[in-house]
Design a protein around this nucleic acid. Structure first.
Length: 1134
RNA sequence: GUCAGUAUAGCUCAGUUGGUUAGAGCACACGGCUGAUAACCGUGAGGUCCUUAGUUCAAAUCUAAGUACUGACACCA
C-alpha cells in the first residue's frame, strides 16, 4: 500500500472547511461539477437576487443552505445544475439610503443634485457590500456562479425587462389609472405596501370621529313609508377622518343590509330630525342619552335641552331601496369639476358592514381606495377641481394642506402632525369641522375614537391615502389562469401554495407598476402631450430607430444611440448605453402624426425587476433564445426563498410567466420560515439578539451550522436559532462520524487495508455486516425519497440516526474486536469493506448538507482506494440502492438484540451488578416461530453484549410463564365497534387457562351483551409477562428473565475482568503502545490470586503478557481495588 | 380587525389511514466503559399532548369555538 488514510489530531471543523475551500478553488470543483454533467438533463434553478445594499444575516445562511442542498443533490443524481447569481439593485431602500448619506430629500433631486449624479451615487451604494456577500457565499459553501451574475441595473437586463413590458402592452394588459395610494406628505413620496408594513408603522391613534347628517334632497321618494321624505331627514354616516368630509361625493350602503328611519332630536341643536341608519346599529348609535319610545306621539313630550332624548323607529327598508336617492352636499366649498350632477347620491358597495358606524359609509373617492372603486363603478365623480394649470387635483395638496377652495380652512394642514413643532393650531381641522357641523345641525355625534392607523416609517407622521396617477398591469384579467397554473406547482409546505398564495391570487388586484422615483427601470412609454398617441418601446434597437425618426423630424439634434451597433451583443457595445431615467428622459420621440412624445415620468416597481429574472438574466429574447423557448433553462425546476417572498418574488415570477408565456415560472418552490433567536423573538439589531453569520461560521464551521439549521426544524417552520444547538450537532453528529472514521483509519492503516481485494459477496459476510449494509441501503433509499420530496430535514435526521445509533453505537462498538484481534482474515476483510462502504456512502449522502466535511471524508477514503475516479464528493454519483441487500428480518433481528440487551442492562443496573461480572443465564419466552428464528441468529451477540453465558428460550407451553392478554383494538374495532368496551372488560378478566384455551383453539367464541362474538388469534395480543422467581423485565412485548446467582467460577471470571481492566488502564497511563508485550506483576490476597490463576490465560492474552507473576510490590506499583479498597497492587514493564 | 401557520417532557423536536404504556436528543440524576479516549455507553426520573365542547366503541391525531405565539393582509367608514 502506497498511501495511508489521513489521521487527525482532533476535529477542527472551521479548519476542515478552510482546507476544503482552498481545494475547491484550486481545482475549480464547482465549475467541474457543472462541466462534467454537460449534455445531461438540466435541473433548472433560479436564484432570487439579494440586494447588496444591506449586510447579510444568519437567515441568509438558512435560505441559501436550502438552495444549495438541492442543487448539490441534483448534481449527485447526474443533472447539470447551472446557477447564476444575481443582484437586485434598484428600489426605494437604496434611494433612501443614499438620500440619508447625502443629506438630501426627494425634492432636492434634480435641483441640488442632478439625477445623473444621484443615480451614480445609487449605483455605487447598491454594490457596496458585494464583497461581503460574496465572502459569505464562499464561506458558507453556497455554490452559485458569482463570476457572471445578473445585475438588474445593467442595460441588457433592463432591455429584457422592457421587452416583457412591451409584450404586456401588446396584449393590452397595461393601462394608466388614477388610484388611491399611501402617501407621506411629510416625506413628499408615495409609500409601497412593503414600507407601510414595516414594524411599528401601524399605531394606535386617537382621532376625532363624526357621525355626520347628510340631508336627503327634497323631492326624493321614501321607501320607508312611501311618498316624499320629510324635509328634515338625514343619512347618518360615520368617519374617522373628518377632513375628508368636504370631499364627500357619495354615500355607500349594503344592498342586503336592513335600514331604518328613526325620528328623534339632534343632541347638539335639539332640532327634530329623522335619520336613516342600519337597523343593527340603532342600539349602538342610540346608546347613551337616548331612550326608545314605542309611540311616535311620545316624542312630542320632549323639551329642548332635556338630558334624555327619545327616539322612535318609523320604518324599515333594504339598502337596495336606498340606492339612487340624492342628498345635499354636506360642506359646499366647491363642486367636482367633472359630472357634478352625478355626485351626492347613495350607491351600493359590497364592503359595507354593520360592525361599527352606521351601516352607511361616507365616500370620498379622492381619499379612499374602496371609495374610489365603488364610486367609479356607480359613475359618481370624485371631488377633483382644476388647479391653475387646468389639471384635476383633490382638495388637499401634496404637502397635506387644504387648497384655496376650502374657505376658512384653506392653507391648513389636514393633520396637526404635519405642522412644524409649535406651529400647530390648538384646534385641528378635524375638530374645527366637527364644531362647524355641530352648529349647523349636521353632526349627529362627535366622539374620540382609538384606532390603528399607518404611519410613515421615515417621518413618524400619519400617512394620507391620496390619489396618484399610475400605470397598472391588468392582473385581474389573467387571475383564473394564474390560479390554474398555480395548482400545478409543488409547494413546500403545501399550505403556503394553496392557502397563502392561492388566496392571494384569488383576491389579486391590478399590479400598480408606477414608482415616482429615480433609480430604477423607466417605464418605456412615450406619450404625446394630449395623450392621444403613445408608443411602448421594447428594445434598444427600436428606441434607436425611433430616435432616428425624431432627429429627422427635428425634435432632437442627435441620436443618443448613434454609437450603439444593433445586433452586436458584446459587452463593449452595451457598455456605451444606459437606459436609466437621467438618459431616457432626455429623449423626445415623434408620433405618427408628427407630435412630440415625452416619456411617462415613472419608474417600474422593483418587484418587476426580480420577477423578470428568468428571462432577463439571459438577455432573452435578444440572446439565449433557445434556452427559454427550448425549455433548457425554463421554467425553473426549483426555487427557494423566505416565506415573506410569497407576495413578493414568488408572485411576480408567477404573474409575469402567466401573462407573457402562459406558463409556470417554477415547478417546485420551498418557502422557508423565519430565523428567530433562541427565545423565539425576531432577530433585530435594535434588540441586540441578531446573530452574526461570519462569527458563527468562523467558530463552528459551515457544516455544523448548516446541519443544525436543516435538521433542527423543517425549513418552513420558524427556526429558534440557538448556538448551543450547533455545538450539540458538532459533538453528537460530526464528532461521532469523525470518531468512526478515526477508528477505521487507525486500523486500516495498521492492516494495510486499501480495498484492493474484490468485494466479498453479500451472502458471505457475517450477519452483523449484512445487517448494517441492509440498514445502509434502507438509508440510501429513504434519503433519496426525502430529497426528491424536498424534505431536507428528514434526510439529515435519517443520516444522523444512522451514523450515531446504528453505525457507531452498535456496529462499530460490537465489531471493534474484529478489527484488532481477528485472526480470521476473511472476517476482518469483510469488516473493513463493510465499514468503508458505510463511511463512503454516508459521505455522499450527507454531502449536500455538509459539503466541506463530507468532501474531506470522501477524499480521505478515496485517496487510498481510488474507488471513484473523481477528486471530490461533489463530482461523484448518488449511490444506487441494492434492494436485495435490504433484509427486513435482519433488521428485525438486530432490533430484538438491541431491545433484549437494553432490558438485561436495565436489570443489571437495578441489582447493581456491573457488566464486567459475567452471569450464567437469561431466559426469553419464545413468542412464535419467527421470533425463535430471529433471536437465535443474534443470540451470541446478545450474550456478549450483556456478558451472560447462556440464553434459554422458553417454549410456548412452558408452565413457568405467566402470560398477559389484551384485545387488539385495531382488528376488533371495525368488526365489533360498539362492543369494544365490553370485549375489553371480558378479555381483562381472562385467566391463564382462558389464554391457554385461546392459543390452542386459535381464537375465542362467546356471547357478550347478548351478541355472539367470534375472535381470531390475531384479535389478541398475548405477551409473556412474568416468570415467577426470576428477575424479569419486559417492554414492547419482549420479556427477559435474568439469573443473578453468582457461582465461585463466575465470580473468579469477574475478578479476572477487573484485573484486565486495571492493567489496560495502566498500560495506557504508562504510554505503552498497543502492540507492546509486558511483564505483569501482581501483589494481592489469596482469593483474588486464585481467581487470577483460574483465568490466567485469558488475562495474559488480553493484556499481552507471558504470565502473571505474584510477588510483593513497593509503593511505585499501582494500588487498586478489585473487591475491597487497596486489596491489590499491580506493576507492569516492557 | 381578517386570514394563515404553530402549540407534545425544563429546552429543541418526532409521532404512520384515529387503536389503549405518547417517543428521541439535550439538560438533570445515577452507574458503566477505557485498544474510538479532550470521546463514548447504559439506566432512570421527567407529560393536563394549550383549553373547552363535539364526532367515535376509541382522539395527541378528525370537527368547532376559545387562548397564546408568529406571520401575511388591512385607511373596512
Amino acid at each position: 500500500m502506497t498511501k495511508k488514510y489521513a489521521e487527525y489530531k482532533g476535529l477542527d471543523m472551521p479548519n476542515v472547511a478552510q482546507v476544503v475551500l482552498d481545494k475547491w478553488k484550486k481545482e475549480q470543483i464547482f465549475e467541474k461539477s457543472i462541466e462534467t454533467r454537460a449534455g445531461n438533463k438540466p435541473f433548472i434553478f433560479f436564484e432570487g437576487p439579494p440586494s447588496a445594499n444591506g449586510l447579510p444575516g444568519i437567515h441568509h445562511v438558512m435560505a441559501r443552505s436550502i438552495k444549495d442542498i438541492f442543487c448539490r443533490y441534483k448534481t449527485l443524481k447526474g443533472f447539470q445544475v447551472k446557477r447564476k447569481a444575481g443582484w437586485d439593485t434598484h428600489g426605494l431602500p437604496v434611494e433612501l439610503g443614499v438620500e440619508k448619506e447625502l443629506g438630501i430629500t426627494k425634492e432636492d433631486i434634480g435641483t441640488k443634485i442632478s439625477v445623473e449624479d444621484y443615480n451614480q451615487a445609487c449605483k455605487e451604494a447598491v454594490m457596496r457590500y458585494t464583497d461581503i456577500w460574496n465572502d459569505l457565499t464562499t464561506k458558507m459553501g453556497y455554490w452559485v456562479d458569482m463570476e457572471e451574475p445578473y445585475i438588474t441595473y445593467e442595460p441588457k437586463y433592463m432591455e429584457s425587462v422592457w421587452w416583457l413590458l412591451g409584450q404586456l402592452h401588446q396584449k393590452g394588459l397595461m393601462y394608466k389609472g388614477y388610484t388611491i395610494q399611501p402617501y407621506s406628505p411629510a416625506a413628499g413620496t408615495g409609500l409601497s405596501s412593503h414600507e407601510i408594513n414595516q414594524p411599528g408603522c401601524y399605531r394606535d391613534v386617537t382621532d376625532t370621529t363624526i357621525v355626520a347628517q347628510f340631508k336627503v334632497a327634497s323631492g326624493s321618494n321614501s321607501p320607508f313609508e312611501g311618498g316624499e321624505f320629510n324635509a328634515n331627514t338625514y343619512f347618518l354616516a360615520w368617519t374617522t377622518t373628518p377632513w375628508t368630509l368636504p370631499s364627500n361625493t357619495a354615500l355607500t350602503v349594503g344592498s342586503k343590509i336592513e335600514y331604518v328611519l328613526v325620528k328623534t332630536f339632534n343632541q347638539y341643536t335639539y332640532e327634530p330630525i329623522e335619520v336613516i341608519l342600519a337597523k343593527n346599529l340603532v342600539n349602538y348609535q342610540f346608546s347613551k342619552g337616548f331612550l326608545a319610545v314605542t309611540a311616535e306621539e311620545e316624542l312630542n313630550q320632549y323639551e329642548k335641552g332635556a338630558k334624555t332624548i327619545p327616539y322612535f323607529i318609523k320604518g324599515e327598508c333594504l339598502g337596495k331601496d336606498l340606492i339612487g336617492i340624492k342628498y345635499e352636499q354636506l360642506l359646499d366649498f366647491c363642486l367636482p369639476a367633472e359630472n357634478p350632477d352625478k355626485a351626492f347620491v347613495v350607491i351600493g358597495g359590497d364592503f359595507v358592514t354593520t360592525e361599527d358606524g352606521t351601516g352607511i359609509v361616507h365616500t370620498a373617492p379622492t381619499f379612499g381606495a374602496d371609495d374610489a372603486r365603488v364610486a367609479n363603478e356607480a359613475g359618481v365623480p370624485g371631488m377633483l377641481v382644476h388647479d391653475d394649470k387646468g389639471n384635476l387635483v383633490p382638495l388637499v395638496d401634496l404637502q397635506g394642506k387644504f387648497r384655496s377652495e376650502m374657505g376658512e380652512f384653506a392653507g391648513m394642514y389636514v393633520k396637526n402632525d404635519y405642522y412644524k413643532a409649535g406651529e400647530a393650531p390648538e384646534k385641528s381641522v378635524d375638530v374645527q369641522i366637527a364644531i362647524k357641523l355641530k352648529t349647523e345641525n349636521k353632526a349627529f355625534k362627535v366622539e374620540k375614537y382609538v384606532h390603528n392607523y399607518p404611519h410613515c416609517w421615515r417621518t413618524d407622521k400619519p400617512v394620507l391615502y391620496y390619489p396618484l396617477d399610475s400605470w397598472f398591469i391588468k392582473v385581474t384579467d389573467v387571475k383564473e389562469r394564474m390560479i390554474a397554473l398555480n395548482n400545478t406547482i409543488n409547494w413546500k409546505p403545501e399550505s403556503t401554495g394553496s392557502g397563502r398564495f392561492g388566496k392571494w391570487l384569488e383576491n389579486a388586484n391590478d399590479w400598480n407598476l408606477s414608482r415616482s422615483r429615480y433609480w430604477g427601470i423607466p417605464i418605456p412609454i412615450w406619450t404625446s402631450e394630449d395623450k392621444s398617441e403613445s408608443i411602448c418601446i421594447s428594445s434598444v434597437e427600436q428606441l434607436k430607430a425611433e430616435c432616428e425618426k425624431a432627429v429627422a423630424a427635428g425634435l432632437m439634434t442627435e441620436n443618443p444611440f448613434t454609437a450603439f451597433e444593433v445586433g452586436n451583443m458584446s459587452k463593449e457595445n452595451y457598455a456605451q448605453i444606459d437606459l436609466h431615467k437621467n438618459y431616457v428622459d432626455l429623449i423626445t420621440l415623434v408620433s405618427p402624426s408628427g407630435k412630440p412624445m415625452k416619456r411617462e415620468a415613472d419608474l417600474i416597481d422593483v418587484w418587476f425587476d426580480s420577477g423578470a429574472m428568468p428571462y432577463a438574466q439571459w438577455h432573452y429574447p435578444f440572446e439565449n433564445k433557445e434556452l427559454i423557448d427550448g425549455h433548457q433553462g425554463y421554467p425553473g425546476d426549483f426555487i427557494a426563498e423566505g416565506v415573506d417572498q410569497t407576495r413578493g418574488w414568488f408572485y411576480t415570477l408567477h404573474a409575469i410567466a402567466t401573462m407573457v408565456f402562459d406558463s409556470v415560472a417554477y415547478k417546485n418552490v420551498v418557502s422557508n420560515g423565519l430565523v428567530l433567536d433562541k427565545n423565539g423573538q425576531k432577530m433585530s439589531k435594535r434588540l441586540g439578539n441578531a446573530i452574526d453569520p461570519f462569527t458563527t461560521l468562523a467558530k463552528y464551521g459551515p457544516d455544523a451550522t448548516r446541519w443544525y439549521m436543516i435538521t433542527n426544524a423543517q425549513p418552513w417552520d420558524n427556526l429558534k436559532f440557538d448556538l448551543d444547538g450547533i455545538t450539540e450537532v458538532q459533538r453528537k453528529f460530526f464528532g461521532t462520524l469523525y470518531n468512526t472514521y478515526s477508528f477505521f483509519s487507525l486500523y486500516a492503516n495498521i492492516d494495510g487495508f486499501d480495498y484492493s481485494e474484490a468485494d466479498l459477496a453479500f451472502e458471505d459476510r457475517p450477519e452483523i455486516d449484512r445487517w448494517i449494509l441492509s440498514k445502509l441501503n434502507s438509508l440510501i433509499q429513504e434519503v433519496e425519497t426525502s430529497f426528491e420530496q424536498f424534505e431536507p430535514t428528514k434526510a439529515g435526521r435519517l443520516i444522523q440516526d444512522f451514523v450515531t445509533n446504528q453505525l457507531s453505537n452498535w456496529y462499530v462498538r460490537l465489531c471493534r474486536r474484529r478489527f484488532w484481534k481477528s485472526d480470521d482474515a476473511k472476517d476482518k476483510l469483510s469488516a473493513y469493506q463493510t465499514l468503508y462502504t458505510c463511511l463512503e456512502t454516508v459521505a455522499v449522502l450527507g454531502s449536500p448538507i455538509a459539503p466541506f466535511f463530507m468532501d474531506q471524508l470522501f477524499q480521505d477514503l478515496n485517496a487510498v482506494t481510488q474507488r471513484h475516479d473523481v477528486t471530490s464528493v461533489h463530482l461523484a454519483n448518488y449511490p444506487k440502492v441494492q434492494l436485495s441487500h435490504i433484509q427486513v428480518d435482519l433488521e428485525q433481528q438486530m432490533e430484538i438484540a438491541q431491545n433484549i440487551s437494553s432490558l438485561v442492562l436495565g436489570l443489571r443496573k437495578k441489582e447493581r451488578i456491573r457488566v464486567r461480572q459475567p452471569l450464567q443465564k437469561i431466559m426469553v419466552p419464545a413468542l412464535n416461530e419467527t421470533f425463535v428464528k430471529n433471536i437465535s441468529h443474534v443470540k451470541d451477540l446478545i450474550l456478549s453484549e450483556v456478558n451472560v453465558k447462556e440464553l434459554e428460550l422458553l417454549a410456548e407451553d412452558n408452565s413457568v410463564l405467566v402470560k398477559s392478554i389484551k384485545p387488539n383494538f385495531k382488528t376488533i374495532g371495525p368488526k365489533y365497534g360498539k362492543l369494544m368496551k365490553a370485549i375489553s372488560n371480558t378479555v381483562a378478566n381472562f385467566s391463564a387457562d382462558d389464554i391457554l384455551f385461546i392459543e390452542k383453539n386459535k381464537g375465542w367464541k362467546g356471547e357478550i351483551e347478548q351478541e355472539s362474538v367470534t375472535l381470531d388469534l390475531e384479535d389478541f395480543e398475548i405477551n409473556a409477562q412474568d416468570i415467577p422467581g426470576w428477575l424479569v423485565a419486559s417492554e414492547g412485548g419482549l420479556t427477559v428473565a435474568l439469573d443473578i446467582t453468582l457461582t465461585e467460577e463466575l465470580k473468579a471470571e469477574g475478578i479476572a475482568r477487573e484485573v484486565v481492566n486495571r492493567v489496560q488502564n495502566l498500560r495506557k497511563d504508562s504510554g505503552l503502545d498497543v502492540t507492546d508485550r509486558i511483564a505483569l506483576k501482581i501483589d494481592t490476597n489469596d482469593f483474588i490470586k486464585s481467581a487470577i490463576l483460574a483465568n490466567e490465560r485469558y488475562i495474559c492474552s488480553e493484556v499481552l503478557a507471558e504470565k502473571v507473576e505474584f510477588i510483593s510490590l513497593n509503593e511505585e506499583a499501582l494500588l487498586t481495588e478489585i473487591e475491597a479498597e487497596g486489596d491489590t497492587k499491580i506493576a507492569i514493564s516492557k
